[in-house]
Design a protein around this nucleic acid. Structure first.
Lengths: 206, 206
DNA sequence: CCTGTGTTCTAATCTGGATTAGAACTGTAG
DNA sequence: CTACAGTTCTAATCCAGATTAGAACACAGG
């Protein structure tokens, strides 16, 4: 019941925070591989090098822990993509912005963080109450892509007569599926990004 | 212990077979939504309108039942696609063959059968022994697409300088992800197929 | 009707894994 | 050195869900 940051010196607080972080990371790792129902607290604890009950010092239930993983994963994905877009000059052509979003999305999803994978892969398997809470974040991210694509259509950089929702989802599907097959031994991340950008750009061109 | 088709009249046998089928179907439905670990026998039984122990009359364990679902799902996907390709005239251009494969794959994955969805969504979450046995089927299907794409490249219908493995996987990813977002209320299956074919064709063009 | 085989059910049993209780350990402040 | 807040552990407890045992039911063949 010491969830509130209160007493304890800086060093103490830091250690506790690190344990919490370690557990969260472990949960992301297990969740991204085993799925929501398959994620056992004992496995998470083992990866984090603590005993299972230690989890309850930081979260009040397994469900709460896993929800945090998903939330963080979702936020991280969106933030990375948005930041990458915000870094572009204001006059960047719409199609090029899509290209950057593709790179950013793949970077997060294939990057070392298991959070976004955990969020993406399990989106469909979460218990109803969690799923509902995730919906707002998902919608926000969907909006980013929606405007990306709509802008491209408006600017004439993209075919005007395709179903934009389907197009958007097909692209995101291709990106989200990448973790299933990408093998760093075979291709560098940069190669995959380049191939994807090229195919998508060509695919959407008017 | 009456797993072998032996006594019983035709009518009797048929009824038993129908129950078995009903359970298998129910298992596919639950598996495709809840994931491997999340699939409870009681839920499957409820959908099939039997009691949980009835499952053990036909399968010796939960794992065996779920493995059959995945196997059937995989086979069904491949068979439908291969059949669709075999139905084409021998001189069909490679790129058009890909177009047909796309349609066939989407038809199975978005069609009323939950089997292929169950197979696809859970491929990564299966217990090691099952996953291993699925591998041969997966490889066979991968080979179908490999030669599809290789032929297209050889025939000049497709860009020669892209990483064919990545291209193949990106396309399959887009297809496999479709069940996550497709809403029959919004788009007909035909529309989604057409959009997908168009984007992929354009994306791969030299 | 009576019997035997095949099918499904109800009522245990058994186990894995979440959660709780409370002891023990750590380190800082007095 | 003592006490206390914070952290983690060991040893229960508890429950959901797979599996097993064996009764009950359905129906064809005699």
């Amino acid at each position: 019941m010491a969830r509130e940051r209160s007493a304890g010196t800086a060093r103490e607080g830091a250690k506790s925070a690190r344990t919490r972080e370690r557990i969260l990371l472990a949960a992301a790792q297990v969740l991204s591989r085993k799925g929501y129902a398959g994620t056992r607290l004992t496995d998470v604890a083992a990866v984090a090098e603590v005993q299972a009950p230690a989890v309850y010092y930081y979260w009040s239930s397994r469900e709460e822990l896993l929800e945090e993983v998903v939330t963080v994963g979702q936020r991280a994905t969106m933030e990375h993509v948005v930041a990458s877009l915000d870094a572009l000059p204001a006059d960047t052509p719409a199609m090029e912005r899509i290209t950057h979003a593709i790179a950013a999305h793949l970077e997060v999803v294939l990057g070392r963080s298991d959070f976004s994978q955990a969020a993406i892969r399990n989106a469909g398997q979460l218990p109803a109450d969690i799923r509902e809470r995730q919906l707002v974040g998902q919608r926000a991210y969907a909006d980013v892509w929606r405007s990306l694509v709509d802008d491209a259509v408006a600017a004439g950089g993209m075919a005007r007569d395709v179903d934009t929702r389907a197009a958007r989802m097909l692209v995101l599907g291709a990106l989200n599926w990448a973790p299933e097959w990408w093998d760093p031994e075979r291709n560098s991340l940069e190669e995959v990004v380049a191939t994807t950008q090229r195919i998508v750009r060509a695919g959407l061109r008017p």
